[in-house]
């Protein structure tokens, strides 16, 4: 029987020109499709005017412990206004229990290195200066009840005074507050907070809610 020389030649060429024969099995950049690139979530109107920047360490985790009287549940009504940035932040699976302040433990014996708290997610988006409601974390999961009662978790008096002082110092540095640094939420402090919130496009509460604290640069411990 006559050999099929054409086929035979193809075979032979295949041996001697391996690259040609196996071209289809070698990956080359030509074959690459567009790679799935994870781009930072950019807000179109902002990025046209300025590049993506992080304003400040920007999360205060946990319940609103520096606001006085209201119980936690009344804040739920705001949850529908949650900015889309915070949803990208991935709130936490129940395995993460928000740090809840119970009556103060003794001051930590060793200095604690406070890295900016990006603990839960490496979210690219920063809550930039948008006029959304202060972000509300979902109710902390089971393990985090502080006093075991239905009362909303609150900072101890010492912690609240210290935080108020920190807020007063920062507001003074920014030029909003000119009174005495005394750790008390007096009218001057409240007015300074309101002025700051107005200028920053936050909800004007006159109180130390988490969003305001975060904007001032106090991230949750």
């Amino acid at each position: 029987m006559k050999k099929n020389w054409t086929d035979y030649l193809k075979q032979v060429l295949g041996w001697t020109a391996p690259t040609a024969a196996t071209l289809s099995s070698i990956w080359s950049p030509v074959q690459a499709g567009p790679l799935p690139v994870l781009l930072p979530e950019a807000h179109p109107s902002n990025t046209r005017l300025q590049p993506l920047t992080f304003v400040m360490p920007n999360r205060m985790e946990g319940p609103e412990i520096y606001i006085g009287h209201r119980s936690h549940s009344s804040h739920r009504s705001h949850s529908s206004h949650r900015s889309h940035y915070s949803s990208a932040g991935g709130y936490t699976s129940p395995s993460y229990s928000a740090p809840v302040y119970s009556p103060p433990p003794p001051p930590p014996p060793a200095p604690v290195y406070n890295a900016p708290s990006m603990v839960t997610t490496p979210s690219w988006s920063s809550p930039s200066k948008t006029t959304t409601a202060p972000y509300q974390p979902p109710a902390p999961a089971s393990g985090s009840a502080s006093s075991g009662t239905t009362a909303a978790p609150r900072a101890s008096q010492q912690d609240a005074i210290a935080m108020t002082m920190r807020v007063q110092v920062e507001l003074m540095r920014l030029g909003y507050y000119k009174g005495k640094i005394d750790g008390k939420m007096g009218p001057g402090t409240k007015e300074a907070l309101r002025a700051f919130q107005r200028a920053e496009g936050l909800v004007v509460t006159g109180m130390m809610d988490n969003a305001t604290l975060a904007r001032l640069g106090f991230v949750g411990k």
Binding site: P107, P111, V112, M165, R166
Partner: peptide, 13 residues
């Protein structure tokens, strides 16, 4: 300074 002192990284005492 006051701001850093209040951060609580170093025991107040």
């Amino acid at each position: 300074d006051l701001a850093e002192a209040l951060r609580g990284d170093v025991p107040h005492e």
